[in-house]
Design a protein around this nucleic acid. Structure first.
Length: 238
DNA sequence: AATGATCTCAACCGCGATACT
DNA sequence: TAGTATCGCGGTTGAGATCAT
């Protein structure tokens, strides 16, 4: 292809965020390539998806991992290895990227410390790769630890156990379709959005976008002055 | 206060899987 | 069935923030 569109990279601007949120609201969070095109954003669909999934999605929980979540991550990593999306699926409001980052910084260090401790107390001659002992949860190896298939087999009760560890109603299982979330579910949010759209929030009336979706994330872009003050909303109305 | 080291996290890349034509 | 487009995942990078000296 000779025609070379200028694809923007790097950090997203507030305007881009607003734009993306709006178009996701309009068309749903799928068909990212389509969204990228119709929105006029000079981003790839992939980039749009990432931005939404990791940052803009109102269902995201922000802030530090709780000790329960931390524990759960540790447990799940010992079970699933680096299958971050799978792990994220058990932690509502957390993204695979977030968990991955978190693991790399906190847990890996922790795991390393744990190993050092073990080394100190156990004879160093024992093979480090021999992790078939039950210690996997306590001393996960550094990145790329293979999935512990044995754990997998014993895992039926494992999940329940982990759910308890994470605290009540904070874990749901995609596979079983079970949802017990403390956070706003995305369905609820979209329901709210839809109902507000049913009234008369059309593209032409965009400045009244202050639906519960926006209220839900008061600390993010939708409450910024930019949104209300900036008159350049031509991208909304065409 | 200046500077270097370390940490954090948003974003990109490559690749495999899946859907569509 | 083959080719192409799109999506989603895991790994990696790099800029900014924070901490230690």
């Amino acid at each position: 292809m000779v025609q070379e569109e200028i694809i923007r990279k790097g950090p997203w601007t507030e305007q881009e965020d607003v734009q993306l949120v709006f178009y996701v609201k309009m068309f749903g969070d799928g068909r990212w390539d389509f969204l990228a095109k119709v929105s006029g954003l000079k981003r790839t669909g992939k980039s749009c998806r990432l931005r939404w999934v990791n940052y803009l999605n109102p269902a995201l929980k922000r802030g530090k991992m709780t000790p329960q979540e931390e524990h759960l991550v540790l447990q799940l990593h010992s079970k699933y290895g680096n299958r971050w999306s799978k792990i994220a699926g058990k932690l509502p409001g957390r993204t695979d990227n977030e968990i991955k980052n978190y693991w790399r910084t906190h847990m890996r260090k922790q795991a390393q410390d744990q190993r050092n401790k073990n080394k100190a107390s156990i004879s160093p001659s024992s093979s480090f790769s021999n992790s078939s002992s039950n210690s996997s949860a306590n001393s996960p190896t550094v990145d790329s630890m293979p999935v512990n298939e044995q754990n997998e087999r014993n895992s039926n009760d494992g999940l329940e156990h982990l759910q308890l560890a994470a605290g009540e109603n904070t874990v749901y299982d995609h596979e079983s379709g079970e949802k017990n979330m403390m956070v706003y579910s995305i369905d609820e949010i979209w329901k709210e959005v839809e109902s507000s759209e049913d009234t008369d929030q059309t593209m032409n009336k965009l400045p009244v976008m202050a639906s519960p979706l926006w209220d839900y994330c008061p600390d993010t872009l939708w409450m910024t002055d930019y949104y209300y003050d900036n008159q350049d909303i031509s991208f909304f109305t065409g």
